[in-house]
Amino acid sequence: MDSEKLTDKILEIVPEAQQEENKQFLTFLIPPDKLKTLTTHLKEEKELDFDYLFCLTGVDWGTELGVVYHLTSTSLNHSVELKVKTDNRETPEFDTVTDLWMTADFFEREVWDLFGIRFTGHPDLRRILLEEDWVGYPMRKDYTDEVNIVEL
């Protein structure tokens, strides 16, 4: 499917989605509560058929926390980039996509570990890289640790 049709299709499913400028991928900013609807449509619908989640990234933009999803379809060869953002730095929370793409399992655990973003509905949300009793989320921009970090 070419990008115009894809844009129309996504806007039809989630009218609130904002398209962002990006040279490589078709990028949309999605309101967090619509994420579940959109991803389910993208995965299940035959003419969209996004069956491969190739990257899931947690990002700290300074004030906002968010997650970036890179999706592609192995049969139809089109890709899309989705973003969700939230201002809530205390208890950020998004819906999980593990039920659609199993690769999201480890990715989401990593994002929880390093950014402290919860994923509702994730089957086993534990820290994956750091110890269970680690305090804080080290990839956040405001993370400080006087003992372990030697600043250059």
Binding site: D51, Y52, L53, F54, T74, W101, M102, T103
Partner: peptide, 9 residues
């Protein structure tokens, strides 16, 4: 299987 491989990436 192929489907699993794609789903798990």
């Amino acid at each position: 299987s192929k489907e699993l491989a794609i789903n798990y990436g």
